[in-house]
Design a protein around this nucleic acid. Sequence first.
DNA 1: GACGATACGGAACGACCGTTCCGTTTGTCA
DNA 2: TGACAAACGGAACGGTCGTTCCGTATCGTC
Lengths: 185, 185
Amino acid sequence: MRADALKNRERILEAAETTFASLGLSVPIDVVAEQAGVGVGTLYRHFPTKEALFEAIVMTRLEELVDQTKTRIDASDPADALFSFLRRFATEALAKADLFDAMNAAGFDIKSGCAGMIDDLKRGIDVLVGRAKAVHAVRPDVTADEVMSLISGTCMAARQAGLDDASCQRMVDIVCEGMRPPVPR
Amino acid sequence: MRADALKNRERILEAAETTFASLGLSVPIDVVAEQAGVGVGTLYRHFPTKEALFEAIVMTRLEELVDQTKTRIDASDPADALFSFLRRFATEALAKADLFDAMNAAGFDIKSGCAGMIDDLKRGIDVLVGRAKAVHAVRPDVTADEVMSLISGTCMAARQAGLDDASCQRMVDIVCEGMRPPVPR
DNA sequence: GACGATACGGAACGACCGTTCCGTTTGTCA
DNA sequence: TGACAAACGGAACGGTCGTTCCGTATCGTC
């Protein structure tokens, strides 16, 4: 690969990351190219399709989140492990519009490429949920799917309400509180 | 207005209601016209723009929800009044994709027409929340905005996860649980 | 039944966007 | 330095979708 080409590839990835983060999948590909200081033709030589570029960005994001679940597997406080992960997840999702588009498969078929990683994420969450259940920190009947939906839904709402991270965290806390085992009142 | 025209107007509204409900704002206008058994030209004589037709549908939906808050204002159990409304809201939103698009202003500027009605809804929720707070059924620090965001976010997530109403209700219940005042553990 | 106004259908227009194509430029290696 | 392969830029293509336009059909009235 020519040195020039390599540099352009970097610039495209960089531009895509920031642009997808703020505008999501719906941003026209020309904008990404312009941001990268590159023609569309060049972009398409590096990534065969918009979807491919998008996947490249999202996969690394998802991977980071999966790692976050793994580092918490052996935490001494399973409740905090789960909840702190969910807060982290929320912060990430609020800042990165593409994460929603990936999980919602909004537009076209992203799932093909990310499905595996999303499943990994789900498995990671499932472990954290299981451990939290074991210490009676969350209700025994909630599922990892529900948890993921609840948090991503909350972030989605926060995002389009234009809320900041702090407000989003507050809502996440409310949801987490709701996941705890009910107490007699 | 000619009899013919009136009938067509009805059919357009009917088709728009079902089509927007299942596919949301993103459905092409041709599909609505076809569903109504009408040409696009006819549709555009009755509604100057796609947005106008959309608003006509959504406004009635929002109005119904506002009414729902009003009938609950004098309920003897403020907690149940709020939570049952939220469940109702969720059911409605899950079944009607357009409600999301309206609240998210996804695509273009819907707000212009619906803003007033959405504010009314927010005010209605605010009253229910206030009354629930008065009897210590919800935390004193939650806001109507947060409640709306939480519920609509939950429904959004449920919708694209393809969940049924029962599963969505379960998630709503979790959120409602989280809104209750924290108890010492 | 005929005539004028009203309404209809759907082809055509224009804007947007993902993708392709090709003439031109640029890096690399001998 | 010269030459060739590799890479570039951006105009052009094709498809989608909201909207407009106009020739035709239909309703309502005299």
